[in-house]
Design a protein around this nucleic acid. Structure first.
Length: 670
DNA sequence: GCGATCACGTG
DNA sequence: GTACGTGATCGCG
C-alpha cells in the first residue's frame, strides 16, 4: 500500500503537442506584463532575462538634468514650504584605481560631490550636476536656505559629510539653528524600518512597491554593480534615472510613511529618537577611535608564536598534518582516525564545536590544544589582523553603525564590528589595550547594570523583583535565595549560578531545552527550575503570558516607546517555529525597550556635550554601554553628565543603575 | 567570485 | 533559548 502510494506513475496517457507549445518568439514570453509580475513577486533572477524595460511611469518624463546657474536659480526660486526631497551623488572615489590606472585629475575638494537630485512636486524632479557653473557648496547652501519645511531623503547618515552646514554649525552658539535644521530632515529608510524592522534592507523600489504600489527600476537594474558616480560618467541617462527616482520616491512616499507611523503610534519614536540619532551616530563615526597600531601588531605576533607552537603539537598528537581550521578535516581526524568517543552531534558531518570538544577534553590532550588553538586563531584573524586593516592615516578606526538592521531596535556595527571586541577571556580582553584616547585624554565608560532584568521588573510590576532592585541586592543571589528557599547569605555558588542562568533564560524567552543546554542538565530538571521561578515571581509569568497572548492576537510586540516587532512565526503551521515565535515575543519588548532607552541617553549626552561646550565626544555604543573620549579637566563633569543622562533616560519603578569606569585605554576603562 | 556552513566574538 | 558580524573552508558555477 505505502509503496503503491509513493510510486510515481510514469505511463499516464497525456496528450501534449510540443510544437503547439513552442513560443512564436521570445517577445511573446518576455512581455511587460510578465515583467511586472516577476518584479512584484521579486523573481530577481528572471528579471535579468527581460529585454523590455520597466513600464514607463509618468515621473520619468519629468526628470531634468540641470547644469547651468541660470536654470538652477530659476528652480530654487520655485521651492515653497512644502516638503522637498534630495539625494547627494558622491564623486568617484579618487583614491581608487580605474582600469588599472590611477585617475589623473586632481582630488576633488572635501565635501564636494558629483550631483544633487531634488524633487518637490510630480513635475519638479531635477538632477543638478556640479561643474564649472554649479558648485557643490552653493547647492548645499540652497538646500539649507530653501523655504521647504521638510527635507526628505534616504540614507541620511551617509550623506551628512556632504551637508557641510550641519557639520560646521554645531557649536553651542549655533545650537538653536542646528536643532532647527536637524528637525527638518525625514529619513525614508528609517521610517520604513520602524514600520517593518524585519526586512533588513529598504531600497527605493521596495518602498515604491510597498507604500505607493508603484513599480520602479531597482538600483541594480539601473546601475548594475557600479556606483552612481561611475555610471554618471559612462551612461548619464541611467544615473539620472537612478538619482531622480531616489529623490522622487522619497518625496512621494513621505505622506504615506508619516501617516503609517502615526497610525501605529510610532511618530514620536521616529521624530524624537530615531531621527536625532542619525546625527549622533554620524558624529560618532566621524570621531572614530584611536588605535595603537604598533601594539596591535605586537599582539598579533605574540599570538602567531603560540599558534605555530600549538599547530606543531596538534600535528604530533594527530600523527599527521591537516588543516585545523577545517571542521571537516578536524572531524575526520578526531572521530575517525583517533576514534574519540561519541562523535555525536552531526549535520553535514561531525560537530567540532567548543561545546562538544569541551566534553572530550579528558579523553585526549589534543582536544584541549585544539580548543586553545581555536581561541588564538580567532583572536589573530578577526581581531589582530582584522582590525589592522581598518586603521586610517590618522591612526583611527571608524566603524559604521547601522540603524535599520536589527529586529529589536538595537544598533549593529560593521567594518569593523566594534561591538564584539573580546572581554570575557583575559587574553582576548588584552586587545582592548590598543584602543586608546588621544594624547592627554582619557576614556569614560558607563554601562547600564542589569537593564533588561530591571525592565522586566518594571514592565511586569513584580513586587519581589522590584524590591530586590530597590534594595540594591545581588540580583542573582536574591533570585537563588527565593527560588531555592534558602536564606540570602546561605546561597551556594551553584545555586547562584543556576539562578543566573534562569534569569538570562527569562530575558531571552525561556525554554526547558535551552536552559538544560546552558546548565548541562536534563530537560526535566530545567523545567523544574523554571516552574519554581514562576512560582516565586507570579507577576513575571503573568506578564510573559500576556505579552505572548497579545503578540498572537496582534501579530506584533511593542516596547515601552511604541517600537513594534512583528512576529510572523506565531502563526506558522510548524510547532518549532511557533515556539520560536513565543520566545521572541518574550524577548523583543525587553531588549527593544533597553535599545530605546540607551538611544535616548545617547542623544541627550551628545547634545549636552556640544551645547555645554565640552571637548569630550561620544565614541562608541555597545548595547548597554557608552564610551566617551574626554579631556582630563572635563573628567569629573563628564562622568556626572553621562551618569545623569543615562540614569534619567527613562523613569521606571526601579532605578536605572549605571556603573562607570575611566582609563587611558579601553581595557582599563571597562 | 559567490553562497552555504561552521565556528565564535559581543550584549 | 534572544540579537548581531566576521573569518575560514569548501563546493558550486
Amino acid at each position: 500500500m505505502s509503496k503503491k502510494l509513493a510510486t510515481i506513475i510514469t505511463d499516464v496517457p497525456v496528450k501534449y503537442d510540443f510544437t503547439e507549445a513552442a513560443l512564436a518568439s521570445n517577445d511573446a514570453l518576455y512581455t511587460q506584463e510578465a515583467y511586472l509580475m516577476c518584479k512584484k513577486l521579486e523573481f530577481k533572477n528572471l528579471l535579468g532575462r527581460f529585454s523590455v524595460d520597466a513600464p514607463k511611469n509618468n515621473a520619468q518624463e519629468h526628470f531634468n538634468v540641470i547644469k547651468t546657474k541660470a536654470e538652477a536659480e530659476r528652480i530654487w526660486k520655485k521651492v515653497d514650504e512644502k516638503p522637498l526631497a534630495f539625494m547627494v551623488i558622491p564623486n568617484v572615489d579618487n583614491k581608487q584605481e580605474s582600469d588599472g590606472q590611477m585617475l589623473l585629475f586632481a582630488p576633488a575638494p572635501k565635501n564636494a560631490f558629483a550631483a544633487l537630485a531634488v524633487a518637490f512636486s510630480e513635475e519638479d524632479i531635477y538632477l543638478f550636476i556640479t561643474g564649472d557653473e554649479l558648485a557643490a557648496d552653493d547647492l548645499i547652501a540652497h538646500l539649507f536656505a530653501c523655504k521647504s519645511k521638510q527635507l526628505l531623503t534616504a540614507n541620511l547618515k551617509s550623506q551628512l559629510p556632504y551637508l557641510k552646514w550641519i557639520n560646521e554649525q554645531r557649536a553651542a552658539e549655533d545650537w538653536e539653528a542646528y536643532c532647527t535644521q536637524r528637525n527638518r530632515f525625514f529619513e525614508r529608510t528609517v521610517a520604513a524600518y520602524l514600520l517593518n524592522p524585519l526586512k533588513g534592507e529598504y531600497p527605493c523600489d521596495d518602498i515604491a512597491k510597498d507604500y505607493l504600489g508603484l513599480m520602479v527600476p531597482g538600483k541594480a537594474d539601473l546601475l548594475g554593480k557600479k556606483t552612481v558616480a561611475e555610471v554618471l560618467a559612462e551612461d548619464e541617462k541611467k544615473a539620472v534615472d537612478y538619482a531622480c527616482y531616489e529623490a522622487y520616491i522619497s518625496w512621494k512616499s513621505y505622506p504615506v510613511l508619516m501617516e503609517s507611523l502615526k497610525e501605529q503610534g510610532m511618530d514620536k519614536l521616529f521624530r524624537e529618537i530615531e531621527m536625532p540619532l542619525v546625527f549622533v551616530l554620524s558624529d560618532m563615526e566621524r570621531q572614530g577611535i584611536s588605535i595603537d597600531a604598533d601594539a596591535l601588531k605586537e599582539y598579533g605576533e605574540k599570538l602567531s608564536v603560540s599558534i605555530i607552537e600549538l599547530e606543531q603539537k596538534i600535528y604530533e598528537e594527530a600523527g599527521e598534518q591537516f588543516n585545523i581550521n577545517s571542521p571537516k578535516q578536524l572531524g575526520v581526524i578526531l572521530f575517525e582516525k583517533m576514534q574519540l568517543p561519541n562523535g555525536k552531534k552531526t549535520k553535514t558531518g561531525f560537530s567540532t564545536s567548543a561545546e562538544v570538544l569541551e566534553k572530550l577534553a579528558g579523553d585526549h590532550p589534543i582536544v584541549a590544544d585544539i580548543l586553545e588553538y581555536r581561541k588564538l586563531a580567532k583572536l589573530k584573524s578577526t581581531y589582530a589582523d582584522g582590525l589592522a586593516n581598518y586603521i586610517d592615516e590618522t591612526g583611527k578606526i571608524h566603524t559604521t553603525f547601522h540603524q535599520t538592521i536589527t529586529a529589536t531596535g538595537r544598533l549593529s556595527s560593521t567594518d569593523p564590528n566594534l561591538q564584539n571586541i573580546p572581554i570575557r577571556i583575559e587574553l582576548g580582553k588584552m586587545i582592548r589595550k590598543v584602543f586608546h584616547p588621544l594624547d592627554g585624554d582619557l576614556f569614560v565608560d558607563s554601562d547600564y547594570s542589569q537593564i533588561e532584568l530591571r525592565l522586566l521588573a518594571h514592565m511586569s510590576g513584580d513586587k519581589q523583583l522590584i524590591e530586590a532592585f530597590r534594595e540594591n541586592q545581588d540580583i542573582h543571589r536574591s533570585t537563588a535565595s527565593k527560588v531555592f528557599h534558602v536564606p540570602f547569605d546561605e546561597v551556594t555558588d551553584l545555586q547562584r549560578r543556576n539562578a543566573k542562568a534562569v534569569n538570562f533564560g527569562i530575558v531571552y524567552g525561556i525554554s526547558a531545552f535551552g536552559l538544560s543546554q546552558d546548565l548541562d542538565i536534563g530537560q526535566k530538571e530545567a523545567q523544574g527550575y523554571i516552574d519554581s521561578y514562576f512560582e516565586t515571581y507570579p507577576k513575571i509569568k503573568e506578564f510573559l503570558d500576556r505579552t505572548v497572548a497579545e503578540a498572537k492576537e496582534k501579530g506584533v510586540t511593542k516596547t515601552l516607546y511604541g517600537r513594534i516587532r512583528p512576529i510572523p512565526e506565531l502563526s506558522s503551521s510548524n510547532y518549532m517555529q511557533r515556539q520560536f515565535g513565543e520566545r521572541v515575543a518574550m524577548n523583543a519588548p525587553i531588549q527593544g525597550t533597553a535599545a530605546d532607552i540607551i538611544k535616548i541617553a545617547m542623544i541627550r549626552v551628545h547634545d549636552r556635550l556640544i551645547r555645554e561646550n565640552y571637548k569630550s565626544r561620544l565614541i562608541l555604543q555597545v548595547h548597554d554601554e557608552l564610551l566617551i573620549e574626554t579631556a582630563e579637566e572635563e573628567k569629573d563633569a563628564v562622568i556626572a553628565l553621562l551618569e545623569q543622562e543615562m540614569q534619567s533616560a527613562a523613569d521606571l519603578s526601579v532605578e536605572l543603575a549605571v556603573g562607570t569606569e575611566t582609563g587611558y585605554d579601553w581595557y582599563d576603562a571597562h
